[in-house]
Write a protein that binds this DNA or RNA. Structure first.
Lengths: 342, 342
DNA sequence: CTGAAAGCGCTTACAG
DNA sequence: CTGAAAGCGCTTACAG
């Protein structure tokens, strides 16, 4: 046996047939006699032949591969989206490969250079911030769908959760329990989701006739230590809130720790609510009440939208905003004693 | 402008030069006049040309891409390894792409089919269990390095942490604090790492003249709820342990919650120690004492080893076992009162 | 400094 | 049912 990996031509030679015949067998296409087919299959097996995807993609002008660009792998948030996208892709005979994104001005060029010719289109989670994004898309003709966009132009296909309504519902939940003084921890304010959640928080309070006390709004960064710090600051306020709404679950975990660290209990002394509903939200103690973002469904919807685009079909809508839902668990409860507002 | 993405030949035509010249410019190779080079560069820019990686890989018979197969994205454990491998790859002009692995009997075939021709080699984290693995490697000639192997044949290149010594050190730490009754929560026992950690725990106790009480060994699965359950079982023992050693950090988090849930405190009433030192270990409260597994370095070492193999160089060793280290934080302390052993 | 030819490993479109 | 030819978009190896 030669040193190099066997190619389709090697198999053809081995069987005394043409490359076309091997190709037909490989792709389960008709036009091959039963006996020939079996002979070829056998040769493929014994030689350990595996088609070269680069060559196949080149010949077909399509790879049947979707690229997914993710900013960060260190949270379950991404994992759920990937699961959804991967399973949706598989249902349409596509495979999914992941690229971790770099940042900076040239991020998009790099993504493009890395994926051109080896993917048919891209799913971009939380795209690197860049004003050039729409221009980039037009220029490169790169097919892509954004998940959790940053507020890019409306002609960029995108899938998000309804962050505004989700935040409104979180406030509704806390108010219905009797809370009147609700602290808020923001996400990174360079994301559209953070802005929408803050807006939902503010308008939620107003709708219930509660004023917005800006000292109750604390800056966060979507990370656990940030949530801890912000919650601690909130708890040290002259009049501390009876409930804390964190812009994501990971910060809510930090907030719960800050509450315990201050010698208080969740939810007896302070209620905590998060946003996302990552798997761990149901695993911590007390389990976390949170706004469920349909991450799996978002990944699946984005993959389906991209596949539609790749098929050359103009989708009826290219911006999907999936509904959220408050998942009530053990970290929220009525306040210890009703708070009087000035 | 035509409908399809511009190709190298389009650029050549646009500039009135041969494809070779464009290729030289693209690859920063000499043999092109300064003025010609600039003209080509300009055409590339305005046309938004990006090379087709599939075609390039085919022509070069190498892709300069490393594939990494990961079992699961939902833990920070993987994220650190990916970071290390990605940065090491970049230092050698390789890019890294990720594939999420499926399981089952044909897992390796699928990986092979998915990556052949679009990657030069594979980094496989915690390979799908399969007896065929070594055979698979030989048959396909696939270049690969395993990270955190399952005990495959010794001729499979692999990188792991020294799990046995790490567990020994964890026991040393607890014993030096005065603990005599130490509970242990295992990982999934189909992994080599779990077996080694359990062995280290047992032998660590023996070395200190402490007997191994098998009722103190509780089965776990590397997941947080599993850690919680196991710890609860340990705490309900007639004579509960004063310290709990969990086979990974995530289970240690669950164990800490079980301790608090039982109305006890960490570390005053029960010490908890983990394994891995994922980023979150330093972020929880109390921060987690744990055995640091050099995940970033493991990823980097695996990438470097693979790149060496790809260069056709026989490495001096193809099995690396990286050192671990106990990182002492706030979750361990001397036991409340010395425990008498029978 | 520049280019024509051949080839990487497949598939499409056409013959027979 | 089967195959010879051409091409996908690049690069290598050779000329000039």
């Amino acid at each position: 046996m030669s040193d190099h990996e066997p190619t389709l031509n090697d198999i053809a030679r081995l069987c005394g047939v043409s490359a076309m015949t091997v190709s037909r067998v490989l792709n389960d296409r008709p036009g091959v006699g039963q006996d020939t087919r079996e002979r070829v299959l056998e040769a493929i097996r014994t030689a350990g032949y595996v088609p070269n995807l680069g060559a196949r993609g080149l010949a077909r002008s399509r790879t049947q591969v979707l690229g997914m660009v993710v900013p960060d792998l260190s949270t379950q948030y991404i994992a759920e989206i990937v699961r959804g996208a991967g399973e949706a892709a598989a249902r349409h005979e596509y495979d999914l490969v992941l690229y971790t994104s770099t940042h900076g001005a040239r991020a998009f060029e790099r993504i493009n250079a890395l994926t051109r010719g080896v993917t048919d289109g891209l799913l971009i989670v939380l795209p690197p911030a860049s004003q050039e994004f729409p221009a980039f898309l037009q220029r490169t003709g790169q097919r892509c769908v954004v998940i959790d966009h940053r507020g890019e132009a409306r002609d960029v296909p995108a899938v998000t959760a309804d962050n505004y309504s989700g935040a409104r519902e979180a406030v509704d939940h806390l108010v219905s329990l009797g809370h009147r003084r609700i602290g808020f921890i923001t996400g990174r304010m360079d994301t559209h989701a953070s802005l929408e959640r803050l807006r939902g928080y503010r308008e939620g309070l107003l709708v219930h006739g509660l004023g917005v006390d800006e000292t109750l709004v604390c800056g966060g960064d979507f990370l656990q230590p940030g949530g801890f710090q912000a919650a601690r600051a909130l708890l040290e306020l002259p009049v501390a809130p009876t409930a804390i709404f964190a812009s994501n679950d990971v910060m809510a975990f930090g907030a719960m720790e800050a509450v315990k660290d201050a010698g208080l209990r969740v939810p007896v002394d302070v209620s905590v609510i998060g946003f996302d509903d990552i798997p761990m939200a149901s695993q911590v103690h007390p389990s976390l009440t949170t706004v469920r973002q349909p991450l799996y469904e978002m990944g699946a919807a984005a993959a389906n939208l991209l596949i539609t685009l790749l098929a050359g079909i103009a989708p009826s809508v290219n911006r999907l905003e999936l509904g959220t839902q408050v998942v009530v668990r053990r970290s929220t409860a009525p306040p210890r004693q009703p708070v009087d507002l000035p």
